[in-house]
């Protein structure tokens, strides 16, 4: 039974990370129809920058912020400098973002090398907690990560559902041409949303480097998980990303624990199942 609890908690940890990574990816896709294949690279960049800043300053919070900002800046630059010029040509954007992810991954390998990094945790988050009721001990950082994902999720929901900026984003998702005809500077909105998505990915990178570890290949892992999460949960919605992340994270950990050599098949099976039953994703809206 203890194993089951631990596996469930591991699944939730992973789900929290997947949610943080996928929600930015989903947001960008929902508004701009851009499949940002460089999303994993943005996450890894955030992780590396966060690691370096934590090493230099000793402040974990500063590391998370720096990682988020670095990836936000990189995301904004990618949209402003490259993807924005091919808006509407989705295939070209996808290919261009693949090129960017290859270049970014290679340059990061150059600068940070092929080694695995783990961010030094602040005292408060190192060590473990004995969980009441379940009777198992669990790493504090992982519990904090779940709380962090929850807070980010709620904040994001508030931003999108309750603010003027969020209303503009939703309007852009619904009918981009109409939004432009009302005078909204779509290019600037796109860049802001790309920065927001990048920031979420970058923070996820620092948190991933704290709760787990990061290395070359982490970018691919989170790109894949983001893809599957939004395919399963539905594109462009925070709730969809949360549900998708929960399913994929849990399935992966149960798979790893109970059928270790076929873990990847579980993720795949969930995706196929959802596509067969609900092609637009569990919480997705059908395409017009």
């Amino acid at each position: 039974m203890t194993l089951f609890f631990i596996v469930t908690l591991n699944g939730l940890t992973l789900a929290a990370l997947y949610f943080l990574a996928a929600t930015g990816f989903s947001l960008i896709f929902g508004l701009m129809r851009t499949v940002n294949m460089a999303h994993g690279a943005l996450l890894l960049l955030g992780g590396y920058v966060g690691f370096s800043v934590v090493e230099a300053t000793g402040s974990w919070g500063l590391g998370v912020i720096a990682g988020g900002l670095a990836a936000a800046l990189a995301g904004a630059l990618v949209q402003f400098g490259i993807l924005g010029w091919m808006q509407g040509d989705e295939l070209r954007q996808t290919l261009a973002s693949i090129a960017i992810s290859i270049i970014m991954a290679d340059l990061m390998l150059w600068h940070w090398g092929g080694i695995t990094y783990q961010v030094t945790l602040p005292e408060l988050l190192s060590g473990g907690q004995r969980l009441p009721l379940l009777g198992v001990g669990y790493a504090s950082i992982r519990l904090a990560l779940m709380a962090f994902a929850l807070v980010i999720g709620v904040a994001l929901w508030f931003l999108i559902q309750k603010t003027r900026f969020g209303a503009v984003i939703r309007a852009g998702v619904d009918d981009q041409a109409m939004l432009r005809a009302l005078g909204f500077p779509i290019k600037r909105i796109f860049i802001s949303v790309f920065a927001l998505g990048g920031m979420l990915a970058g923070m996820a990178g620092v948190v991933a480097a704290s709760a787990l570890s990061i290395a070359p290949g982490t970018d691919l892992q989170f790109l894949l998980s983001s893809l599957v999460v939004v395919i399963v949960g539905g594109m462009g919605s925070v709730g969809g990303a949360a549900l998708g992340a929960l399913l994929v994270g849990l399935a992966e950990q149960y798979g790893l624990a109970y059928a270790p050599t076929y873990g990847a098949v579980f993720t795949f099976a969930i995706m196929v199942l959802v596509l067969a039953v609900r092609p637009q994703g569990l919480l997705g809206r059908a395409e017009k």
Partner: peptide, 8 residues
């Protein structure tokens, strides 16, 4: 916009 309220 189908996901915006009248007020929005």
């Amino acid at each position: 916009f189908r996901s915006l309220s009248v007020e929005e």
